[in-house]
Every structure is written in C-alpha cells, then in structure tokens.
Design a protein around this nucleic acid. Sequence first.
DNA 1: CGAGTTGGTTTTCTTATTGAACCTGCGTTA
DNA 2: TAACGCAGGTTCAATAAGAAAACCAACTCG
Lengths: 177, 177
Amino acid sequence: MRWNKLEGEACSVARTVSVIGDRWTLLILRDCFLRVRRFEEFQARLGVTRPILASRLRKLVKDFVLAKVPYQERPLRYEYRLTQKGLDLYPIVMAIVHWGDVHMAGKKGRPLLHQHVSCGKTFDPVMICSQCGEPLSPRQVHVHRGPGAASPRHMPADAAAGDRKQRRPVRSSRAHP
Amino acid sequence: MRWNKLEGEACSVARTVSVIGDRWTLLILRDCFLRVRRFEEFQARLGVTRPILASRLRKLVKDFVLAKVPYQERPLRYEYRLTQKGLDLYPIVMAIVHWGDVHMAGKKGRPLLHQHVSCGKTFDPVMICSQCGEPLSPRQVHVHRGPGAASPRHMPADAAAGDRKQRRPVRSSRAHP
DNA sequence: CGAGTTGGTTTTCTTATTGAACCTGCGTTA
DNA sequence: TAACGCAGGTTCAATAAGAAAACCAACTCG
C-alpha cells in the first residue's frame, strides 16, 4: 500500500498519519511548538538532511499545518508558522512527550518540565472525557460506526463499565458537533 | 541521522518517535486498541506487506509495547497483546483520532464515534492540566529544563498567562513524580 | 570586489519497502 | 495415507525513499 492510499481511508488515524506519520515530521512539529520557525534552525536542531527537511516543510504547508510567511523582504525570507490546524496538533505532541517522560526517560529523569501558566504549577497532560470529565482509559470506551464509516471494518466489541459521579461537560474549543 | 540515534536523544518526543514514529506502527497500534491481535488479521486489515508487518511487530515486542503470547498449542500460535506500556499509548492514539475527526473528516462526517461507558455519552477526548484541570493550549505552557536535560538546546521562551479559577488536581494513573 | 547568510536544489550512494513466492508445523478431509 | 488448508512467518528481486556532500541564487555587508 502506498502513502497516498492512506488519505482516502475511512479512518481518522490513517488520515492523520498521512499528514504527520513520519518521524521527521513529528520532530519538526515538536520544534514548531518550541517556537522554531526557520529552515536553518530546524536543520541545525534536528540534524535532518536539507532535502528531507525541505520536502517535509513543503508537505506540511500543502496540508495547511504550517504557513510559509515572509518575515523580511530584500532579501525575501520566509518562516514557517503553525496554522490553527497545526496548533490543534498540540494534544498529540503533548501525549507523545508524556509517554516518553513516563516510559523512556533515563535515570536522570525527564528532559523537560511543563509549567501551566494559568495555575503556575508543573503538570502532566491528562486526557479526559469531554462529557463527564473523567480520565479516559481504553476499556472504558466503546466504538460505534459514525456517519463517515465505510465498509464494515475497523469494528470492535467491548464491555466493562463503572459508576462514577458526573461532572459538567468541558467546553473544548473544538468539541463534538 | 539514523533511527537508532533518536533513542539516545535527551528529548521525550525523539525517544517516543524512535518507538512509534512510523506510519505502519501507528496503524498497527490503532488496530490493537480495536482488539486486533493476530498476524493474519493485522495483515488483512492494514494491507501492509507481510515482511514489514513482521518487522514492526518484532520491534514493538522488543520495546515492550506488545507481548507475544501463545493462544493455543498444537499448532503453537501466538497473538500480540498490548502491555501496560502499550496501553499507555491510548492518549496518543485518541489525540490522533480526534485531530483526524476534526480536520480530515470527509463531508459525511467522522468514521467512528466514541462512547464513554462510564457516563454513556458520545464524547471527544480533551487534554487538561493535571494540576488545575483546565484544557491545555500551547500558549499557556512554559517549558523548563528538567533533570534529564542535556545540552542547552530544545529551549524556548514564552509568555502570556490568564487568571483562571483553580480546581483540585486530577489523579492520573501515572502522574508527575 | 569578496565573503557571509538564508533557503533551498542536485547528484550519487545506501538503505528500506514492496510484491510475489515460498516454507514450516500441524490438523482435517477423502 | 495423501492431499489440502491454515496461521505465521521468511526469502528474493525490483523499486522507492533517505543520507551526505556539494552546489546554487539572491541579497547584504565591509
């Protein structure tokens, strides 16, 4: 199966992976969230070869994850900035960082600490249900065919429930329609 | 730069990417969370070639993300199951699914809906701060060097804060030490 | 004029992925 | 008992992608 096939699949993972499912792309995005914006800076930090970097940046721009905007004229120079679509990748990047912190950290501990400006504390990211606010675990989630489903594939069966107190829904900036 | 180099980097993204930063691996993990466990079933659902599937499963087992356990003897047959380390990838997979749902869904809508068994509702995953419970956004997070940091790289500068009410910390199963 | 900076492209070589076929151990059917 | 089927792989030749190093172009600065 080829890359391009993925985009057409009726699966959100496949579609997302067709955009960011490449190790250099993920490392580029990490640096984007650390305010890196220029070709040379990406290249120096990542150690990626220039042709690959150019091709990945081109693809991210084509997919509207990054925008190539001039930061000066004469000589005309561009920088790469996250679009809203790109900024929305933040939970993915944070989830990746957190898993690495928990499972891949050396004995010296985690390389980076995250401080939440709003509350001032060092934190971990936690993924919760937008409806009840409880932390998510795989066994607590059932999957159903949605309107965009294709052939009867990608379908599981599951069980197990819990009785937990209800909270009020979290207003996510981009919640369920 | 080579794959193996990534594992040694003082960056949790790089380390995580050295394990799961491959499109086939991510699609395999998607199916793992949909209760797919056998070689033939992965192969049929993913359309990946058999040598690649074998090599990816081998790597995931080596990295303790999957465990290869016999489900019958005579003939001896194995299945691949998520370990706890693998189950902990759930937020990453859910974040990927959600981004695909929001940004890559076709006009028919999302392919899959997620129901939270605990509360019964169809939900979206939301990533929050473990300390105050507020949804995370990139601009609200400052990064600092942790104990495992290496050379003075991967360091940003940031600003902007907000005054938000405080909640009590979320007890994540694997929170900040 | 010559050197430096930024943001790339070109070229050549090496590695990874694909597609198809083949292998193994065992059970089942004829 | 021979033939076939199945699950779970491996082997092999052809092709695509990635790495390393060099090169290019537009402009500025001294």
